[in-house]
Structures are given as C-alpha cells and as structure tokens.
Design a protein around this nucleic acid. Structure first.
Lengths: 398, 398
DNA sequence: GCCAATTATGTCGTAAATGACAAAATGATC
DNA sequence: GATCATTTTGTCATTTACGACATAATTGGC
C-alpha cells in the first residue's frame, strides 16, 4: 500500500525537471503544514488553474490529503492540503567530525526515528557510507518501516560541495577533497542522494519549518563551539566559489586580536563562540562548566553569567553589522547553544548591531530595519534540513 | 521609419511579462555584441526552437539584424544577431549630489550623446526631473534624434530604492526619503522609468559590457572619494532591507580606528578611499595633488606614490576578505579612480586578501579561488548601467 | 577530393501551462 | 433573510514553449 504510494511519489519527483510545476507544488506542500490551492499559486508563481489540476492529480493518487478548512475572513473558505504522511519517508544524515547522526522523517516531516553514533575522527567516505547504511537499516527495522518507502537521503556535510557534486575543500572531513560524493554514497545506499553543507541545511530547516518560515532572504548565525552560518538569497543558501559563503565565524572584528585556528587574528568566533564563553567562565570560576549550565544559570539570574552572554552578544552584533553593510538582509536568525539564552543574548546583540551598523534605526521606516530572532531548532537543525533537501528537491546529486 | 521600429520594440518589451521569452531574448541580445541563436538558447535556458522562432519574428519586423558570421572551430558557422541600432534610443541619467549627468545610447549601446550639468546641492526631485527633461530635449535636438525613438529612461540614484519604488533612505539626496520616484519623474518625462542605486548601475554596466561580462555572481568595489560597491547574486544586484547592501566602504576593519562620516570607527573607506590617498599625499608633499596625478606618478615609477596605492590595496584586500568569508564570490571587480593604477593596486590587494582570507589558495583548486580584476569603466559606469536598465528591462517602476 | 564528425538552423506535432469563465461558499450590510 | 462583496475553486479553449526530426554548412582526416 505505502509502497505503491511511494513509487508514485518517486516517479513524480524524479521523473520531472527540478523546476517543473509538480515539484514546485510538492515543495510548497512540504514546507508549511497545510496550504490552500491559491496560497500555493501565490507562493510558487504558478497559475491557479495549474495548481488546481496538479492537486487534483495528487489527490487522486492519494499523495495529497485534504485537511479541515479554516475561515480567516469573508469569502469561500480555503481547502487545506497536505502531503499524505503515508506516502513515504525521508532520511537526513549529518556527517560531523566525530559523530554521524541519522533521522527518519515522514513526508509531512514528522521525525519518526533518530540515531546518533560516535565515530572515530578522520573516517573515510566508504566508512561513512557503511555507517549510514547500517543506521538506516537498523532504524527501519526497529520501527517496522519498509525500506521501499524511503524516497531519498539528504546529507548535511561538514565540508562544502561544489556544484558538480565534488567536495571542494577538506574543511572538517580530512582527506575528502575532490571526492565525488554521489559516487561514494549512491552505490551503498541505492537511493537518490542530496547534500549540502551543515550550516546550509540548518538554514533550510529554519526556512521550511522554523524562525525564517516564509522568508527567502536571511542570514543565519550559529553560535556553537565553532561559529558558522549561512547566507540565504532568494530562497537559496549561497555556497561560494571556495565554499566559504556564510563563514561568519571568521570575519575579522579586531585585526590585532588573538590568533584563530584558521590562521587569522581576531575572528568573530573568538569573541562569541561557546568556546569563548566557557573559557571566560573557567577563568572566573577556577573550574570548567558546560555551556548549557552557564546559559541556564544566566537565565536564573546570575549576573556574572549574564555578563558573559552579553559580551558574546555584543561581539556577534558587531560581526553582523558587517553583514548588514554588505548583504543587509531583512532577517537575522541566531541559533546554536548560546541562542537558548534568548533575549539575554539577543538584546545586547541588537544594541551592538545598531551601534556599529551603517544604517541606524532612525534612518529608515520600521519595516526596513532588520529583525533579529532566535532560531527555532537548537540541536538537530542540520539533520532536519538534510531531510528537508529531499522533498524540497534541491541539491540533488546526479 | 525609426518610429515604427521603436513602437514595435516598445510593444514587445512593455506588453510582455518581465520574464517572458521575448524579453529574455532581447536581454541576451542587448548584452553581448553579437550572439547566435544557440548561444542565446544556452544563456537564457530557453529551447533552441523557441529562440529560433522569436528571432525570426524579430528579424521580420527588422528589430534584429544579422551580422557577419564567425568560425571558431568545426561545425556549421553561427549566424550572429544584434539589435538594430536604429530601433530606438535609451537614456541613462545619474543623479549625483552636485551633478546631474545624462547620456543617450542606441539599443546597441553605442553612446550617442553625453551631457553633465552641475547643480546646486540639496536639489528637489521636481527640480531634478526638470533638469533631466531639459537635458534630454537639448541632446535630442542637438543630435537630430526623434524623441519618439526614446524607449525608456534609466536612473542611477545616489540613494536606495525600495521594491515599491519609493526612496528608502535619504542617503546623499537630502529630503528624498519616502518619495515615490515614478510619481515624481514619469509625468515630466512621459516615458517608462527605470531606476537603481548608483553602484548597482555600475555593477550592471560591468556585467553587461565590462569586466564581469557573462558572470552572474561577483562583488564590485568602487574606490573613489567615497568607497562603495555592489553584491551581485544570480545576475541581480542586492538592494538590502535598508538599501545598504554593497556598502563595502563601511565595513569596519579596525574597531579603534578614526571616526568616519557615517558615525562608526575604522570604516574601510578611511583606509582605501581616494580621500585617504590624497590626504596622505598632502601630508607628505606639503601641498595637495589630484588623485589622478598621484596615480599617474605612481605608474611612472615614483615609489612614494606607489606605496600609497599599495597601502590602499592592502586595506581593500583586508575588507574584501570579509566579503570572501560571507559571500565568497568567484570574482571581485575593483573600479573607481584608484583602479586606474592597475596592478600597482591589485597586486597588494590580492596578497592582502590571501593573507586575511579564511580559505587560502592552497586549500582549493585554482578554479575555486576568486579572481580579481580591474573594472573596465572608470568614469561613466553608473550612467551606462542606468541606460542598460532599460533594455535589460529590470528595475522597471510602475 | 571525399567522407566522417561537428555544430547550427528551421519546422512541426505534442504536451502543458495559462487566462477567462462560471460557480460555490462564506461574512457583512441593510 | 435577502443581497452584495469577497475569496476560493474547478473547467475548458487558447496559446505557447518544447522535443524530435530533418537539413545545412563548415573543419579535419585519409
């Protein structure tokens, strides 16, 4: 039953062009939970009639189901559509430096299963493919899912991918440079493969279901041990000629600052990463303390920890003001461990951005001043986004 | 005769959607000098057959003419097409702080006439519209051109424009904030109006006929008295939520540096603008010297002036390394007065970029490392680009 | 000088997206 | 409670862009 649905969905997605109307509609459906025909038409730019006929087809083959209607104002109430969760499953896999994590989601993007496996550092692509395959098999068996329902596998990589599908640069995955990603993973997994960088996947998750929902232009800043990010323009996350687009952690905010692991001085990462915050805390306390505890202590009101977060926010705001001068997105999303501090981090960040930015709040209308929000996902954003690649049908490797 | 052609071209351009195949073809023709059917198909993504039929129509109505063929290799030689220069004229107008400049170009983008008029500072939109109208009338009379052949007028503004056509922020044009640009200029000029910021127009000129030809992703840095720039992604120059995208002159490269006119400290403009170079020269010589002379002296080999340009290049490279971390474009175009120094500026700039950038040259293949080029246009890039808006058919205000 | 290979061009039937039309289902107004 | 305004939905003829085919014009090798 599910198998028949899955193969229909596969035919629909993989038979067509990447920008064909059908894929556009599925993409629109995969984002927001429940959408009406005319909403899809507006979002995709297609004619209402086109969307109407496509949806009729999809409903006929049971790939799309109708949900209860909503009544916002006058006029005929819209019929809300959604992808049939039983139509298939997607896998999102994160290939991190010392961990491989796999999640399974249905096409409505409910997370069905989740598995994180520590791996020895400097693992090879072959090894990674085997680990992922094993994890997927295990999860599908454990949760009584049919492997045939798997539509595609999305990867969140700790390394940038060139448009031709090769690893452009050995960022955190040592020795992977020049490797054709699909060639290494397709044969083992025997499913369509999608991939993008870890932070671009995170940005996609925020764009599809998170704080950037409905927004196609924003800058993401992830404050973890390392500081990374993504630049989304027109719904697409930039990769960059050398795959370094969105490396916000390594813009220089003080040319005479301390040395950074990247070989420069005074990188933003050194002033607002979780590493900085915990180092400062250690200096102060005389012992080490996990970042998560620092954050919760700050939330509970301990002023010392609050100041540490405020300092990090101040630095981040200074860094983002550069993005404000160059890219000037309408929205900044701050995520990562430190973002769980909420306004304790965001308020000083906003103030610092305003102080250092080229355009001051009073120079423009409210609507033209950027908004700063905490990200919705703190932990598994990259895995979720990786799964999102599949139905969004972007970054397909072939 | 020309009038009939012009009205046909107008109907073609203005009757259709902005992204209709016909407009795409005309856009492709307006860029490169002479293009073959299949080249257009490749550039626009349209089917060859579609382009073929469209071109046949255009040739029938004499809007497109065939040019002599070229033979690059084996295979049937391509037929080169070009817009008929007699089909119409475009106007590009620059609204600068203390000057309004107007150029007239035919649809093949040969500059036919050029007129720069000094105006008192803080002029009003009404005044500007009258000045432009007068200049256009004068130029068309002087060169015996029919006003009816004028297809549209493009404006290069010293202020950012919101997508709704209103001036977002009084940048250099005092008191213009909130003004609906079309409402102010259409009634006086009675022609379709196009507009974008001064530096985005400059970027367009470089993209259509200059150093960025054929490249749809690049960052432009203009080193004049002030330092500005543009960020082009996917063929479109970013505007930004507050219209400050591309303001490379105001990224902060030293948080403890001197005050900048924008209210921050240590802005890039203070280290690599023409103002910096001439101030340094004055300090050294004990008298002032025009920047153009400083550059030519440096070219002639005077080491003191060479060092000044090298210092500016060093700073610019430092600033661009931030763009390298965030946007990471495959191409950087350096233009403005200082760019006329050529390699005297570019060589230190490249070295400095490499030193300060996140991705080093050895980390990636040659093809994935950004290229640095001097801009092709040093003086009238913004005016040219403004005229380019018309045939490119982007940034139409209505 | 001929043939293979390569590349560009034009035509035509087909598939498909569109715009226009008609109908349906509500809230607001009198 | 009827009517109007509003918004959504589905259908159908028209338009239109595309893919496949046939053809044309050149280079280079034998």
């Amino acid at each position: 039953m599910a198998n028949m649905l899955t193969s229909e969905l596969e035919g629909l997605l993989y038979g067509r062009e990447l920008d064909s109307p059908v894929v556009k509609v599925v993409r629109a459906l995969s984002g927001h939970g429940a959408v009406s025909t005319s909403q899809i038409a507006r979002n995709t730019g297609l004619a209402r009639s086109t969307v109407s006929t496509i949806l009729a087809d999809l409903k006929r083959s049971n790939l799309v189901i109708e949900m209860e209607t909503r009544n916002p104002g006058p006029g005929r109430p819209a019929i809300a559509h959604s992808l049939n969760p039983e139509a298939g499953t997607c896998v999102g896999a994160l290939l991190d430096v010392d961990e491989i994590r796999v999640i399974v989601a249905d096409v409505a993007h409910n997370v069905v299963a989740d598995l994180a496996m520590p791996v020895e550092r400097e693992y090879s692509p072959t090894k990674a493919a085997r680990v992922v395959k094993h994890a997927v098999d295990t999860l599908y068996k454990e949760h009584s899912l049919a492997y045939g329902s798997l539509i595609g596998i999305g990867f969140a990589l700790s390394a940038p991918l060139a448009p031709d599908g090769r690893i452009m640069r050995s960022s955190a995955l040592h020795g992977w440079q020049g490797i054709d990603f699909r060639e290494a993973f397709q044969p083992v997994l025997e499913k369509p493969i999608f991939a993008d960088s870890e932070s671009n996947c995170a940005a996609l998750a925020e764009m599809m279901w998170g704080a950037a929902n409905g927004c196609s232009d924003f800058v993401l800043l992830k404050l973890n041990q390392t500081v990374s990010g993504a630049v989304v323009v027109d719904g697409k996350a930039l990769v960059g000629a050398s795959g370094s687009a969105g490396e916000m952690g390594h813009i220089v905010i003080d040319p005479h600052g301390p040395l950074c692991r990247c070989g420069n001085r005074g990188c933003l990462e050194l002033y607002c990463g979780a590493g900085f915050v915990s180092r400062m805390a250690t200096d102060w306390l005389g012992r080490s303390m996990p970042v998560s505890e620092i954050v919760s202590r700050a939330i509970q009101g301990e002023t010392g920890f609050r100041r540490l977060l405020a300092d990090a926010g101040e630095a981040a705001g200074r860094g983002l003001s550069m993005a404000g001068a160059m890219i000037n997105p309408p929205l900044f999303i701050i995520s990562g461990v430190l973002a769980s501090a909420g306004e304790l981090l965001l308020a000083p960040l906003r103030a610092s951005y305003e102080k250092h930015s080229f355009v001051k709040r009073e120079d423009v209308d409210e609507a033209h001043y950027p908004v700063f929000k905490a990200g919705k996902f703190l932990d598994n954003d990259n895995c979720l986004g990786a799964a999102g690649l599949v139905l969004r049908h972007s970054s397909r490797l072939k």
